[in-house]
Simulated assay, not measured.
Amino acid sequence: MANYVEEIKELVIDGEDEEIVDKIKEAIDDGVSVGDIVNNGLIEAMNVIGPMMASGELFVPEVLMSAETMQVGLNYVKPLLQDGDLKSLGTIVIGTVEGDLHDIGKNLVAMMLESSGFTVINIGIDQSPQAFVDAIVENNAQIVGLSALLTTTMPAMRDTVALIKEKGLDVKVAVGGAPVNKEFADTIGADGYSEDATGAVALCKGFVGA
C-alpha cells in the first residue's frame, strides 16, 4: 500500500495546496483512517515545519504556504472526523489589540496553533479589551493570545491584560509582536511571551502540559 500519510505530510511541508485534497481522497478510498491522516499527516507536518522555521531553514512565506495547505486539508476532512479522531489541546482566543491593524504575524501564529492541535478562535484586528474578555467567556478559552505590532498600541495590550485580571478569568495570557519583549510581558502581568510562531506553539503547549 502506498504510504499516503507520509505523502500527505510531504505535500504540507512543500505547501502544495492544490494537490492535498486529491491525495487525502486517495488515502481515504484506500482505507486510511481520517484520524491517521489528521494526526500523522497534517499535524505531524506542522510539527516538522516549526523547527525548520526556528532554524532559519524555512521563512515566513514558505511557512504560511505550508500552514494554508494544512488548513485546506483539515477543512476537507473536518466533516468526516469522528469523536476521538482529533483531540483538542485546548481553546485559544487570539487577536490584535485595539488600534492595531496588523494581522500577518497573528494569523501565522493562529494557523500554527491550530495545526498543532489547538482550537483557535481568531477574533481579528483592532479588538478592544472587552472584546477579548467576551470571546474568552463565550468560548471557555484556556489561553488568550494578544498581538501588537505598534509601540503606540502596547498600552492597549496592558489594558487588556488588566481587564482580564479584573474579571478574574482563569486563562493564561500570552503576548507577542515586534515591539513586545519578555520584560514588557512581565510588567503587564502576562503569563508568557514569544517572539515567533514556533515559540508561541511551545509556550501554549507548556500552558496545557502537552
Rank of each mutant, 00 (worst) to 15 (best):
M1F: 02
M1K: 03
A2M: 10
N3Y: 09
E7Y: 05
K9Y: 09
E10D: 13
I13W: 01
I13M: 08
D14C: 01
D14A: 15
G15A: 12
E18S: 15
E19L: 15
I20E: 06
K23D: 00
K23I: 04
G31A: 05
V32R: 01
N40D: 14
N40E: 14
L42G: 01
E44P: 00
P51V: 07
A54W: 00
S55Q: 12
S55H: 02
S55C: 02
E57H: 07
F59M: 14
V63Y: 02
T69H: 02
M70A: 13
G73I: 01
N75Y: 02
Y76K: 07
Y76V: 08
V77G: 05
K78A: 14
Q82T: 05
D83I: 03
G84A: 05
K87G: 01
L89P: 00
G90K: 09
T91R: 11
V93H: 04
I94V: 13
G95C: 10
G99M: 11
L101F: 13
H102W: 05
D103M: 07
I104N: 09
N107P: 02
A110S: 15
M112W: 07
E114D: 10
S115A: 15
S116T: 06
G117P: 00
F118V: 04
F118H: 06
V120T: 07
N122S: 11
N122D: 15
I123D: 08
Q127N: 15
S128I: 09
P129W: 02
Q130R: 15
A131K: 14
F132L: 13
F132Q: 10
V133C: 08
D134R: 09
D134W: 02
I136A: 11
Q142L: 11
L146I: 10
L146Y: 00
A148L: 05
A148M: 07
L150V: 09
T151D: 12
T152D: 10
T152C: 09
A156Q: 14
A156H: 09
D159R: 14
L163N: 06
L163M: 15
L163C: 09
L163G: 04
E166L: 12
K167D: 14
G168T: 12
G168K: 11
G168H: 12
L169I: 13
K172D: 08
V180Q: 02
N181Q: 12
K182T: 13
E183D: 15
T187R: 07
D191I: 04
Y193T: 01
Y193F: 15
S194G: 13
A197W: 03
A197Y: 05
V201L: 08
V201K: 05
L203A: 02
G209T: 07
A210M: 06
